[in-house]
């Protein structure tokens, strides 16, 4: 345990050089972190949703820098382009605004929540970070996540889960049509 903690607290910096790539990654990662904080920090629902959009977009940028273009573009198509638009749509239709009157100045929930969050973060970090510390590979191998490879994997090794998911989606579509097409 102590060893692990030492690994987190004092990473071996010898292998790192400050390169343009690292700076670019730092900029993207910092933006992603800031926007992630913004999602929970803003009172205004639209601002939070926009921060989430930015977060997803920057994450896609990080995937691009790691040579995982397919992954990044899927992130943009699915989350930034489709799901977040629906989020915004709903927020605007409900006209959610900052609940000014319900704000409690000395809310114990904030402190408890932050503490629990930090504990959770530490637990996850202790599990994840030591394994990543020694990795210096700047990106995936060229063509690792290319559309061809992804398609081939989906239709050979993962064909049953893939088809199961597509049937699940079909059920979802049929269900939504049934709900929407109720006869009056």
């Amino acid at each position: 345990m102590l060893n692990l903690f030492a690994a987190v607290a004092a990473p071996k910096m010898a292998g790192f050089a400050i390169t343009g790539e690292l700076l670019f990654f730092a900029a993207l990662a910092g933006l992603a972190m800031l926007s992630a904080v913004g999602v929970v920090a803003f009172n205004n629902a639209v601002r939070s949703a926009l921060c989430l959009v930015l977060n997803f977009f920057v994450l896609a940028g990080i995937y691009f820098t790691l040579n995982a273009e397919m992954m990044g573009i899927t992130q943009v198509v699915v989350y930034t382009g489709a799901i977040m638009v629906l989020f915004l749509f709903v927020i605007m239709l409900l006209n959610l605004s900052a609940p000014a009157l319900l704000q409690d100045k000395n809310d114990p929930k904030t402190a408890v929540g932050m503490t629990l969050g930090m504990v959770m973060f530490t637990l996850v970090a202790l599990q994840v970070l030591p394994g990543l510390m020694s990795k210096t590979e700047p990106g995936a191998v060229d063509g690792y996540g290319s559309p061809v490879n992804v398609g081939r994997a989906l239709f050979t090794g993962f064909v049953i889960p893939f088809e199961a998911v597509s049937i699940l989606l079909l059920i979802g579509i049929v269900g939504s049509i049934l709900l929407a097409k109720r006869r009056f």
Binding site: L50, M70, I73, T80, V85, L88, S146, P147
Partner: peptide, 25 residues
Amino acid sequence: DVNIGVLWIMAISSLGVYGVVLSGY
């Protein structure tokens, strides 16, 4: 010249919604 050219078009054109929706809001 990435190997996702068409997907890129789809992805970016789907971002066109934001400008219009946010200006409306």
